[in-house]
Computed example of a mutant assay.
Amino acid sequence: MNKETYLGVDVTPLSYSEILSSLKERMDQQLKSTIIAVNPEKIIAANKDPQLMDLINSSTYQIPDGVGVLLASKMVKGKVQSRVTGVDMMDRLLEFAAQHGYRVFMYGAKEEVVSEAKRKIEEKYPAITIAGYENGYVKDHEALVKRINDVQADILFVAMGSPRQELWIREHMDKLNVRVYQGVGGSFDVFSGNVKRAPEAFRKLGLEWFYRLATQPSRFKRQLALPKFLLKVLAKR
């Protein structure tokens, strides 16, 4: 799989459908795959944290979640054609699971959030099998691993915030029989209806970051990672 690299961080230049096609092949071969969302803020952080850099680059798919990664690819005539957001990737995987009969396990968030997300997902995709779920306050992780294996989950979504969720996946992956792992951050909040996404018009134009900034001015400092990232990419051209 050819990948692009920005400030030392790998990015997978595949669309949603291409990732799902690749995943299907890997699942048929009984291979394990991990998905991690990449944005300018995370890339800047990875340049200061070797463990985070390794965590990202050792994943199977590094999806270009931030519009900054898309812009950087265009600047260097790369192959990233559109954003692949973490929450939309989860949604595509849920549809994929419903279509192919794969079993899903959801882990993380508050009890009322994950249970409501499960209910709404099952409402949206009646054919889906959510084999189990657990909130993010588990103490006995070995028992959780056993439960995930006992229900024969094929796809695992972990919502604990990044990089904590990816570190959890890395630590327990060898003991799990799951084939697809995705750290999904606050996606359970979105699926439960607790958090509203930007209107579709903003998302299509790649301006979700602007909507978030307008509705949450406290994010201003975090958004500074975008111009900083693009300037660094330009400097390395």
Rank of each mutant, 00 (worst) to 15 (best):
K77I: 02
A45H: 00
K77S: 12
M75F: 10
Q30D: 12
L52Q: 02
K77R: 13
L71C: 00
P50E: 06
E41S: 01
S33C: 15
Q62W: 04
I44A: 05
S33T: 14
K77V: 09
L31W: 00
S58M: 02
N39G: 01
D49Y: 00
I43D: 00
S59T: 14
V38K: 05
G66E: 03
V67Y: 14
M27D: 09
S59G: 09
D54Y: 08
L71Y: 12
P40K: 02
D65M: 05
L70A: 09
N39C: 04
Q62E: 15
I36P: 06
L52D: 00
N57C: 04
V80F: 01
K42Q: 00
A45V: 01
L70Y: 12
Q29K: 15
A45Q: 08
S58T: 12
S33W: 13
K77P: 04
N47L: 03
I36R: 04
G66M: 08
P50Y: 01
D65K: 04
E41K: 01
K79W: 04
V69G: 04
E41W: 01
A37W: 01
G66P: 02
V67A: 11
E25K: 14
N57R: 07
A45D: 02
K32C: 07
V80D: 07
L71K: 14
A37K: 02
S33Q: 11
K32H: 10
A46N: 04
